[in-house]
Amino acid sequence: MQINLLPAPSLTKRLRHWTAMGLVAVLLAMNALLVFFWAGAHMLMQQQNDALVKAQREIRQLQPAYEEQNRLMTLSKQYEVLTEWANSRPPVRTDLELLASLLPSRGYITNVELLDERTYWIRAMLPDMAAVASYMYAAERQREIAQVKALGVERKEAGIQLEMQTTMDREH
């Protein structure tokens, strides 16, 4: 059994009350949403920070290995450059071994100059003129040699000094 002799609030009062209550509820809901989003953003930021710290730690751990790898790569690149450079140089040693192998007995090369990638200026000492002719002939017959040009012959105490220009055949 419930009895209440207090006058019931008027419609205006009740409307005002419910409006105020509704407003409070909406504000509370908005506040709750804001807190929810703020907490979400905060959590996301925290996760990102954690991931960043973890990544930095991993980077620090990987740094020596990276530097070693980098050093190896630099060396590898240097090696490649050097190899490329070496490959781009004329095969001087091979050429000289060929030219030396053609010398008759008691003949020897005393001076060599590389005039361009294909052409050598050579000074050789040979025992006599026959050896000079033999050497020129042998050189001309070589497939690796495109052109042989005698520049001068001079008699010396040790024999005949030959100065010649040899152009190698690189296409061969």
């Binding site: 009895i3 209440n4 207090l6 006058p7």
Partner: peptide, 21 residues
């Protein structure tokens, strides 16, 4: 009587929710 009681209680800062017998 109810109005005067409510007014007096309001004056005292005491909020009545029910007046019964």
């Amino acid at each position: 009587l109810i109005q005067s009681l409510k007014a007096a209680f309001d004056l005292a800062g005491v909020g009545l929710s029910v007046v019964e017998v």
